[in-house]
Write a protein that binds this DNA or RNA. Structure first.
Lengths: 203, 203
DNA sequence: CTGATTTTTAAACAAGTGTTTAAAATGAGT
DNA sequence: ACTCATTTTAAACACTTGTTTAAAAATCAG
């Protein structure tokens, strides 16, 4: 347990926690300062505004998010292994950071000001060669014909939504946290089976 | 174009628009009053607080949301037709009200105070007999064995997420609104095909 | 130790928040 | 025309908001 963080870092960590939990609109600079155990003015001394601090946190979340995804694609594996492992890893990542997709989507929805490095993001994914691997598999007839947008939608839907909608589904089905976690683990299997079966049909 | 709404209704309609667009934390009573073309005090005259007005709007959104889902289940159709039509309707509903699932999930996440009528919600669905229809189809071996929670997750994931994640996916893939709409319509087909294929495998 | 620099503090700022109040406008029934 | 309840208004309330300021404290270089 190293409390050897600089003031600046402590504030940023606190901001991460608070912003992820409550969103930009749902918290105040004072709340972030308190969470960091610091004076409010320090927030403005190190980061010039609430928005600027937010941008930093947002970008960091986005990067964690993308990094977790790209890792698998860079490996030297067959396409179907990559997708299988991707789902596995995504479920793992999201059970540790379930708030991230909702946070990102919500904040982007509420203002375009979330200046995402658009080009960089697609560059990151594209540079792994995953797209070419897809196209090739499609040409060989191993994989169903499906544009890359739909492919993204399909996989992300089934990985993100079960974590994002946890509070809704727990409420609807009256499930405890543990019960829901069990369902998530089961669901990972189903999703993998379904997606693999759909993308790579055995003739 | 009937402007024949009572003051109370005008405020509620304005609140719906504003809350859905910006969330509870993202707007003020004055903003709602302004949107309705009314004095702020009227918001408090008709609804005793911002929270109370919000609860009303939230409940209404939840009801629209559930009603759209239950309708299909009540019809006199085979299970696979019901699911097929459900997906169709859900995509239609969400292309008209894309903010609803994100709104509901987000607000439930940020406070349990969203006193959802839990029992009512499941009652609504259960009373259509859809669950029995599922269990029967499973016993007959027509449908894959899958608990109802996973079934819900599976279908909602693929219907809700593409609409919720629109701003993220448009950003990532650099798509115009129209282009994205086209992708959505295509995606509906893919999702239907995939889910039907998975749930009702042809032996 | 000293003087300059960096870091931290408490206090203040104007603007915006949810909410209340008390008076004005409105309209129906006598 | 007068009464009384309902509806609408402008103004005020206490408090929180993002942000700044000016001084105090801590740090560090020579």
């Amino acid at each position: 347990m190293s409390t050897e963080l600089s003031t600046e870092e402590k504030i940023k960590e606190a901001a991460k926690r608070v912003f992820l939990a409550k969103g930009f609109d749902g918290c105040s600079s004072r709340e972030i300062a308190k969470e960091a155990g610091m004076n409010v003015a320090l927030v403005y001394y190190y980061f010039r505004s609430k928005s600027q601090l937010f941008q930093l946190v947002f970008q960091a979340a986005m990067e964690d998010f993308m990094t977790a995804m790209v890792e698998v694609f860079s490996a030297d594996l067959s396409l179907d292994s990559k997708i299988r492992i991707f789902i596995e890893r995504e479920f793992d990542f999201l059970s540790k950071h379930p708030e991230i997709p909702g946070f990102i989507i919500n904040e982007i929805t509420r203002k375009e000001s979330c200046a995402v490095d658009k080009i960089d993001m697609m560059e990151m994914v594209a540079s792994t060669g995953i797209f070419q691997q897809c196209l090739e598999a499609q040409r060989k007839g191993e994989m169903i014909k499906l544009d890359l947008v739909s492919l993204t939608m399909l996989i992300l839907s089934n990985c993100h939504y079960p974590h994002m909608a946890r509070p809704l589904l727990q409420e609807i089905h009256q499930l405890s946290d543990e019960k829901y976690n069990q369902h998530l683990m089961l669901h990972k299997q189903y999703v993998t089976e379904m997606i693999m079966g759909y993308l790579f049909p055995k003739k």
